[in-house]
């Protein structure tokens, strides 16, 4: 129970700036993506202690959950409709949200590892919450396929080739639960997709979204700051340069 009172916020980290760690994935996949030629500022610091030479640790992008370019492109376009680029700033794609979601689905979020997933499964009342036997990975995979099917049904085109308004029509149909899915409702998938998009937009950039902390800049959230003790009583609104939690720890 030793309290580490020193050294938790003032570490002098080695920094190597300017190395863009763009998404290094198959050319065929990246080529077709709108907005993915954005440079993604990776963290290129060396952990203190374990790497005394200060060798830059470069973060590589790449898909861990989605398998096809189409899956990834559908989720990219859908998240962009939920959080679009506008005059305030970047949208979901530029903020790296599709990579964030891919990342999350590959981890315990995607497999509901910390949630009760034992049967028997029954539908239940809305007040009883999530009762699906499917995990989030399975729900996303099915949901994406359904978005595409619905696009072909309504507009005879794949989802990614639709106009923005047509995509919105389909997403609204999911939101209103007018599309059928197996083992889960379209409404639930939409809620999950909306929340995952917001998470990717606003989570700390260590998770692969919120590129350059630009979403925080738009919103006026400065991320991790060690202390506001000197500012908390001020009457003026403070615009602070955001900082990532990666500046807090090793």
């Amino acid at each position: 129970m030793e309290k580490d009172k020193k050294g938790y916020s003032r570490r002098d980290f080695l920094k190597t700036s300017g190395i863009a760690t763009g998404a290094v994935i198959g050319g065929g996949l990246i080529g077709g993506l709108v907005g993915y030629n954005v440079k993604r500022e990776g963290k290129t610091t060396a952990p203190e202690g374990g790497n005394k030479e200060g060798v830059p640790v470069q973060r590589q992008g790449g898909l861990k959950f989605f398998m096809s370019a189409n899956e990834f492109n559908v989720i990219s376009q859908a998240t962009e409709r939920i959080f679009p680029k506008d005059d305030l700033g970047p949208g979901a794609i530029e903020l790296g949200v599709p990579f964030f979601i891919d990342n999350q689905l590959a981890g315990h979020y995607g497999s509901n590892a910390r949630e009760y997933m034992q049967g028997p499964f029954y539908e239940g009342a809305p007040t009883q919450g999530y009762q699906s036997s499917l995990n989030r990975g399975e729900i996303f995979r099915q949901g994406i396929a359904r978005l595409d099917e619905e696009a072909k049904k309504r507009f005879e085109k794949p989802f990614t080739e639709l106009e923005g308004k047509q995509m919105d029509e389909i997403l609204t149909a999911f939101q209103k639960d007018e599309v059928s899915m197996n083992g889960v409702t379209a409404e639930f998938f939409f809620k999950l997709l909306r929340m995952a998009t917001l998470e990717g937009v606003y989570a700390d950039p260590i998770y692969g979204g919120n590129t350059n902390m630009d979403a925080w800049r738009m919103k006026g959230f400065p991320g991790h700051h060690a202390s506001y003790l000197q500012d908390i009583e001020k009457d003026t609104y403070l615009e602070l340069e955001p900082k990532s939690v990666s500046e807090m720890g090793p």
């Binding site: 129970m1 030793e2 309290k3 580490d4 009172k5 938790y8 315990h108 979020y109 509901n112 590892a113 910390r114 949630e115 009760y116 997933m117 998470e199 606003y202 989570a203 700390d204 260590i206 998770y207 991320g223 991790h224 700051h225 939690v245 807090m248 720890g249």
Partner: peptide, 28 residues
């Protein structure tokens, strides 16, 4: 203890994924 809270300013991990809280896969 306090030394485990050194990278705590992380909304996703602690406030949304409930890092410090009960693992419902074991008991709910």
């Amino acid at each position: 203890g306090t030394s485990d809270y050194q990278v705590i300013h992380d909304e996703l991990r602690y406030a949304i994924r409930y890092e410090l809280m009960q693992d419902l896969s074991k008991e709910t």
